[in-house]
Design a protein around this nucleic acid. Sequence first.
RNA 1: GCCGAAGUGGCGGAAUUGGUAGACGCGCUGGACUCAAAAUCCAGUUUGGCUCAAACCAAGUGGGGGUUCGAGUCCCCCCUUCGGCACCA
Length: 858
Amino acid sequence: MKYPFLDIEKKWQDYWERHQTFKTVDNPSKPKRYILDMFPYPSGAGLHVGHPEGYTATDIYCRYLRMKGINVLHPIGWDAFGLPAERYAMQTNIHPRITTEQNIATFTRQIKMLGLSYDWSREVDTTDPKYYRWTQWIFLKIYNSWYDLRQQKARSIDALIREFEQKGSEGLSLEPGFTAEQWRKKSKKEQQDILADFRLAYVAEIPVNWCEGLGTVLANEEVEEWREKGYTVERRPMKQWMMRITAYAERLLEDSKELDWPLSTLDQQKNWIGRSEGAEIHFPIKGNGETVTVFTTRPDTIFGATYMVLAPEHPLVNVITTQQQKNAVEEYRKQAALKSEFERGIDKDKSGIFSGSYAINPATKKEIPIWIADYVLMGYGTGAIMAVPGQDERDWEFAERFGLPIIRTVQPPSDFKGKPYLGDGPAINSDFLNGLYIDKAKVKIIEWVESNKLGTRKINYKLRDWLFSRQRYWGEPVPIIHLEDGTMKPLDESELPLLLPELEKFQPSGTTESPLALATDWVNVVDKQTGLKGRRETNTMPQWAGSCWYYLRYIDPDNDRVLCDPAKEKYWMPVDLYIGGAEHAVLHLMYARFWHKVLYDLGYVTTKEPFMKLLHQGTILGEDNQKMSKSRGNVVNPDEVVLEYGADSMRLFEMFMGPLEDSKPWSTRGVEGVYRFLNRVWRVFVTEEGAIDPSIQDVPASPEFERLYHQTVKKVGEDIEALRFNTAISQMMIFLNETMKLEKKPRALLEQFVLLLAPFAPHIAEELWNKLEHSESLAYAPWPSYTAEKTIEDTVEVVFQVNGKVRSKAVVALNTAEGDLEDLAKNDTHVKRHVDGKRITRTIVVKNKLVNIVISPN
RNA sequence: GCCGAAGUGGCGGAAUUGGUAGACGCGCUGGACUCAAAAUCCAGUUUGGCUCAAACCAAGUGGGGGUUCGAGUCCCCCCUUCGGCACCA
């Protein structure tokens, strides 16, 4: 007979809901744990088997913690803005809100079907105006902040304005600077432009991937896809909202050292931030008084800088290009603009064109040609380099191709065969640096550069500011109005939320603007204060915005005065354990850390970092070991699995498959395996008639069984704490296998076993607990305890080795003396056969483990 | 190319302050129950050799070297797979 999982699971899910079993109460006197899942994007396809993996892991952990008396916060919600719903709306004209609601309903049903112990009263939905009101509120906070380098933190823009009014730009590196009086005389527009250079959210004209055919800007990773479909995508400078995440580069790097995160994720973030130390050096341009500033990590090689390169987009290109070269340069720039950054990288053959001008190498005082080439990127450093072909692969390649001079300035080893030499060695051809190795040469040249006012020491980051605007409808509107006098006006907090307008048709606007531009009533406004006409910002926020702070809203989801009550924030933050996919290793996790730090600086949160411990669940592959996909036909539907084997089996199997963070293939046989285990559990406890099995009696346990029990309690608890669920389940299986052999089963221990099983398979556990005459849910029953002494075996098997090879074994009392072990070994018949006639050179005895007799050949 | 993770039976995986490799599950084989099947239960199951069988012997944790009484575990080199980055000066 199969155990009636469908009835049981329904029954207990209803029970938990009716009794609000998992509703979390803020109780600052109790120890807390905040356990967070990455909230899902509710797609039309519904849940796939990958989702429940992480969710089950956190659920087991939470259920365990509750039984340990911990106050647990474990919420769920929806990252529901996003492109799929909007695309669907374009095709069907069904409002994304409708689609989103339907998808959320499906996801909710499926998640509830798995018996996950979320506090549903805290559910959040990023598309709910009550939620995105606060996303917009945070945007305004960021917009109205600037990063004060002196204090290394974000501060209100009002503080900066006051400072300008009182002291002008003194103390802030600003070119050109101004006095307080000059500031006051500036027009509002001029003042705004200056402030924009400080704000953490600002509008910039940056090159983006513009696709005329689609009427939208594409993300870098989307470009290839649309090109293949025949669309033209071009790099075009456009006005976009940016977030000044680069101001936080150093802190994002520094603070990550204290996080308990997967090494690979920390590494990815580190690489993404890409800190490098070096110097900025000014190269005067011959003949016109301008200078080109370059960034280099190898200032020690400056004597080998035989030419310079500017990025095609560099502002000085127009200034330095000579009349003769004008047409060729113009043509080259056009071609470069058509290539994405990705394509520039793909093109291994370096291209470039001579500008016609020369610069003076400040070290050698020699004239060097200035080239324009797209292997230099405008977005990094200064967009210009000093080319040192002797010590740089790219420069060498370029120099070879265009016949530019190559001078080595580091002596390669005598057996060196390569072209550029990147390793360490004494400087050569470098005047006063000659003989110095790289580190010392760097120190000396930077001193020389700084004392001669030719440049400065400098740290650069690969990290770039965050492109924050999207030409989309289904996102949070940016609460900014562009006034006719050219200034921008943020909405007042009291005007939030700024709701999305209703649209009749969900089509691209036909211009570079989002579909919001079509909602003319919404877009066109008159500023009440000034009477100026204005247009609302028509870009919306990226999907990342809502997910940047949702963990804070769970803490206080219904608060309409603040985004999160400070006392509650102090109690619950930080998130103690965060589980979600590795695909978010950089973007989501970096953006969220960034916003969190801004909120920290402004005093809205009390922790420097939001997520203390992070774990990525591995991908669940199809039964054929391939990625699950519709086209492969290897997708497993959780609904079917639950219908056939029950939610408890599904949960148990996903945890039993292997380590949480590993990728592993689905196996229907495997599900059947854990399903059989649950059936055995049921049969051990319950008779055919549904009564408690008569073999379960109030009898004392045998010493062996009691020992196994204590070992099991210990192992299951320790494994849950370490999130090693697969081995915890193994141990429970071992316990059950032994239990089944007993004619009389000690009730007390079996009851405790039900509690061990409860976090993993909560439905069957509740039902058994109930049958064992407990009237209340076991959700808060005390977790079983064990006695360390009782886990210890009184005998051990000791191995006898000869020359490291196992030749015999013996069971002896625990802690048998080493001398006795040695005697046993030497008298063992099997050992004797290998030892007799040989000379024993050494004997190693490890108590409770082994005896190793080392013999020499004769 | 660079960074990171990982390679253990037919399969998923256990086992690391260096000390019995293969726990647990799947599959497979044989048996019990059954008219039969399903379900369930019991036994076996790394490979090879020798065996009716046991015992025994040999090999064995991607490959090759090394350290050690002893290596899946530590060190060096290489190969493969997966994930990320990709002209970042």
